[in-house]
Design a protein around this nucleic acid. Sequence first.
DNA 1: TAAAAGATTTAAGCATACTTAAATATTAAT
DNA 2: ATTAATATTTAAGTATGCTTAAATCTTTTA
Lengths: 221, 221
Amino acid sequence: MSASTENFLKTIYCFQKLEARDTKPGSIAKALGISNAAATDMARKLSEKDLLEYRKYQALQLTPKGERLALQVIRKHRLWETFLYRTFNMSLLEIHNEAELLEHATSDRMSEILWNYLEKPSFDPHGDPIPNGYGFVDFEKDSTVLFKAEEKQEYRIIRLVSNDEEFYNFCCDNKIEIGNDIKVAKQYSKNQLTEILIHERQIVIPKEFSNNIYVTKVNDQ
Amino acid sequence: MSASTENFLKTIYCFQKLEARDTKPGSIAKALGISNAAATDMARKLSEKDLLEYRKYQALQLTPKGERLALQVIRKHRLWETFLYRTFNMSLLEIHNEAELLEHATSDRMSEILWNYLEKPSFDPHGDPIPNGYGFVDFEKDSTVLFKAEEKQEYRIIRLVSNDEEFYNFCCDNKIEIGNDIKVAKQYSKNQLTEILIHERQIVIPKEFSNNIYVTKVNDQ
DNA sequence: TAAAAGATTTAAGCATACTTAAATATTAAT
DNA sequence: ATTAATATTTAAGTATGCTTAAATCTTTTA
Ligand SMILES: [Mn+2]
Ligand SMILES: [Mn+2]
Ligand SMILES: [Mn+2]
Ligand SMILES: [Mn+2]
């Protein structure tokens, strides 16, 4: 499988399962930075290889075979991220960018070596679950996006999803890190701002950022 | 640069400098497992990009620009080898195979991170020198192939070059490792066998293996 | 419900990286 | 110096992965 194919399958998988975006060729094309025509082309080729189902004007759907391949690539991606983060102390953005390349140059043997060396991790440094060879071990707690969290509730940060340097700088500067607890002080719905309490400090977070921060309730304890 | 281009330049470099093989398209083709026609094609394209000089029926020669690129790929290859060897204890053969893939998926930033993490190593686990960004730091001691070593002389093993699993198994079984000292007992020239003393044991090595073992004299001490 | 707007697909074309088969040049042998 | 053997190049063709422009379908809006 070429890097193009791997990225294509991976993107469909993520849009289908993780984010709730549609998976028509156009959306995938935009995400990968290629033309619609190229995405349609690819879709037809991959459907001939039984990696996905393609019907004109419909959303693309991975076959079981396609999903298995996508998961293997995602597994490699997140193992590398975990490894780079722990070993070299690289930033949450850097590990993503490097893993985006390394994932396509990783033998199955190599990914098993990483997996064992890291002591069979379940989550990567962004809080995303690491697929377990075949099926997902996806024991993702139920999570909300901070943007939609309830006022006066306590939450724990469990996932940060973005490719934006400024977002990660913001997180870093404000101790928004996985595992940290916060309290939602107020939702300024009209202006799409969320005010939270973290480490005794009060900060206001705009939608662009609060939408990338996933939290889970911790009140019941 | 694509992986194909990188492997092409790298092979020319190695044939030119390290091994004394000719660099006509045919030889490169054989090494890369592609057809002569494909190699000729590639040669013409790369000469248009000023990465090598191509004249019909002549050996290929890297331009300074081509050599610089080749060295950068070799640098990445050997940094990964060193890293995989030290961190995961992978075998001398495995590290080569994985590095063959990883070298093409490594940003310059990543290779600097490896280089610093490894504390600026000068040689990889096979004893090959690691190029230093631009120019070679190639302070290779003068070495002979064990096959041509003098009888009764003491040598130190400094380099093992091969892609053959059996060769590495043989080395492993017989403590033929970089840094170890040996004495050449006898050269059975007619039969192309070399008898050596290593760790109190006497072993006879056929040409196929002794030709991959590089040594340097240690008598003057 | 018909036209306008927006997406998607088709068509034509290009670059890369290969292939095999044929033509041509080099090298080695008589 | 021919000829035969060997190597290299050219030619023609394929698969992948992209592009832009035109045609077609779907969705929205009036
Ligand atoms: Mn990728
Ligand atoms: Mn991640
Ligand atoms: Mn390689
Ligand atoms: Mn090496």
